[in-house]
């Protein structure tokens, strides 16, 4: 197994773990943590290809990750604000108890 394949496998593993958690845990915050893990798995792929792939000295992969980190931070802030608003409204952060669209 080459180093690149090692990185890609780790990233696939992280993605799968994040996905499993995001869809099967009850708490909304854990779903968010799962999404963050999936994003990070993608970031690892960018870095791995930037390091081992044909790059020609460019910074493309790094840039993508820098922007992805910024977007992930924004996503976490808005997502958690939504969860807190949801909790205020329904007194629960469990996703399967949030069924109706009407307030």
């Amino acid at each position: 197994m080459t180093p690149l394949q090692g990185c890609l496998l780790l990233s696939a593993l992280l993605f799968a773990v994040g996905f499993a958690g995001a869809v099967s845990r009850r708490n909304a915050i854990l779903a968010l943590i799962g999404i963050e893990l999936m994003l990070n798995a993608a970031n690892l792929n960018f870095i791995a290809f930037w390091r081992y792939g044909e790059h020609g000295g460019g910074t493309g992969g790094l840039m993508f990750v820098v922007f992805a980190i910024a977007v992930a931070a924004a996503e976490a802030a808005v997502g958690l604000a939504l969860i807190i608003a949801l909790y205020r409204h329904l007194k629960t952060a469990n996703l399967d108890e949030v069924k109706g669209l009407k307030g």
């Binding site: 593993l13 799968a16 499993a20 869809v23 099967s24 009850r26």
Partner: peptide, 19 residues
């Protein structure tokens, strides 16, 4: 309470398939 949502087996199964 259970920490997982109902139907979690499907989620984990999907994750295994993805991996």
């Amino acid at each position: 309470d259970s920490i997982v949502a109902p139907g979690w087996v499907w989620g984990v199964g999907m994750a295994v398939v993805i991996f």
